[in-house]
Amino acid sequence: MKFGGIVIVGVGGTGVLKASEMLSRFLLNQGFDVRQSEVHGMAQRGGSVITQLKYGEKVYSPLLGKGEAQYMIATEEVEALRYSEFLSFDATIIINSWRLNPVGTKPEPYTGLSARLYREKGILVYEVNADSIAKSLQNSRVANSVLIGAFSKIFNSDNENIWEDVIRETFPKKFFDINMKAFFKGRELVTI
């Protein structure tokens, strides 16, 4: 493997940046060189957002090319489809089972469309009900930690202490506990 690639996609304001920060810290901790690219400013006002993450023995460019991501984490199902060109055919996707329709149109519950389309292509898809879990924890902002929890299981990372450090470094102190809870809920959810 030249390098591993992960894209984290979603809607501005759903914790995409924090999720990729967590992943980057984790991968660095695993002894990888890491580069991660994100977009700030205009794109964050509820628009479509993507961050790209690369890890390996030595990584140069912070940008992924077409077909170079083995993992995608999507905080919303339509956004999962928007960035399909980055995925390799053996990719694994974690989708938050949540849908956000365009402003002004009728809200719809999660349709599972992206999961179905990806599965038709032979891609391994995990649908994670991160949004409801976050709401059950009384904080809709921790859905990203639920997704990262799911990822930790899929990525076969058994060292829970490392994740504890990662969460401590990423969030302000007062949000540590709730993000830890969210992380473990996500972790329990996935069976592989």
Binding site: K66, L81, R82, E85, N101, L117
Partner: peptide
């Protein structure tokens, strides 16, 4: 190889 024919199901955001 990449999958690039799925963004037809996407609306602008």
């Amino acid at each position: 190889p990449s999958i690039d024919d799925l963004n037809q199901y996407v609306f602008p955001r």
